[in-house]
């Protein structure tokens, strides 16, 4: 994870702690998750299931599905998700499925 973010944040909002791929991050509460992760220095959100190539947000409007992350075991578009306290975010489908 690159913490020298290529993105500049101009708003100040109260922050909450989430985890991304197991690492804690402080993100603005209620922010667009994709924007918040980018600003926190996360560039690659996932690896493609086809070639393993890294991908990050592309369209920011829910059309391209490149910003997919996993929340509660479900692949979600980060750009269509709001930051809430305690959110556990993973790269999609990297862990094993529970045999449940």
């Amino acid at each position: 994870m690159n913490n020298a973010s290529p993105f500049l944040e101009t708003e100040t909002a109260s922050r909450v702690t989430v985890t991304f791929a197991g690492a804690p991050l402080d993100l603005p509460l209620g922010a667009n998750l994709a924007a918040a992760l980018l600003t926190a220095g996360v560039g690659a959100f996932r690896q493609t299931p086809v070639s393993g190539a890294p991908r990050g947000p592309f369209c920011m409007m829910g059309a391209c599905f490149d910003c997919l992350v996993e929340i509660d075991g479900v692949a979600r578009q980060a750009c269509m998700t709001e930051v809430t306290a305690g959110l556990q975010i993973d790269r999609p489908h990297e862990g094993d499925h529970d045999a449940g």
Binding site: P49, A75, H93, D96, H97
Partner: peptide, 10 residues
């Protein structure tokens, strides 16, 4: 017929 996203072996 339905098809899901690509998933690890299930």
């Amino acid at each position: 017929v339905l098809i899901t996203e690509k998933l690890p072996k299930l």
